[in-house]
């Protein structure tokens, strides 16, 4: 899994690529938490750009939860552009009720 972060349109955008599973979730989690802190310091919302992600197992969902706890009320987290597979996983886990999900990253 590869991770890149950029500022764009008044948001911080974190972009994981590849898949988040038992071998890569810790890196994803650390990168995500760092991005939440960076967003909080800059007073920006955080968009997680999922367009390059194949899928994540519950390890990745766990990282999202920890990021949300870290963010508290300070940073709004939006998940953007999940593929079909990710969309299904977010629905089955009911994470679509915990996170705002948008179709594309937009600009």
């Amino acid at each position: 899994m590869d991770w890149q972060v950029r500022k764009d349109g008044g948001r911080l955008i974190g972009q994981p690529r590849g898949r988040v599973d038992e071998t890569t979730w810790e890196k994803f989690s650390n990168d995500l938490i760092a991005a939440v802190r960076e967003a909080a310091a800059a007073g920006l919302p955080l968009t997680v750009d999922l367009t390059g992600l194949d899928y994540m197992s519950s390890r990745g969902l766990r990282a999202l939860t920890m990021a949300k706890r870290e963010a508290g009320d300070a940073v709004a987290i939006t998940l953007a552009g999940p593929n079909e597979r990710m969309r299904e996983i977010l629905a089955i886990s009911r994470y679509d009720k915990l996170f705002e999900i948008v179709d594309d990253v937009g600009l």
Partner: peptide, 26 residues
């Protein structure tokens, strides 16, 4: 659901289908 088990029903002492599958896979 996993979503409930990490939010509203956190610390209620139960698990989810998602975690069960992942543990069984591992």
């Amino acid at each position: 659901s996993l979503g409930d088990s990490v939010s509203l029903k956190q610390d209620w002492g139960h698990s989810s289908n998602i975690v069960a599958v992942d543990l069984c896979h591992a």
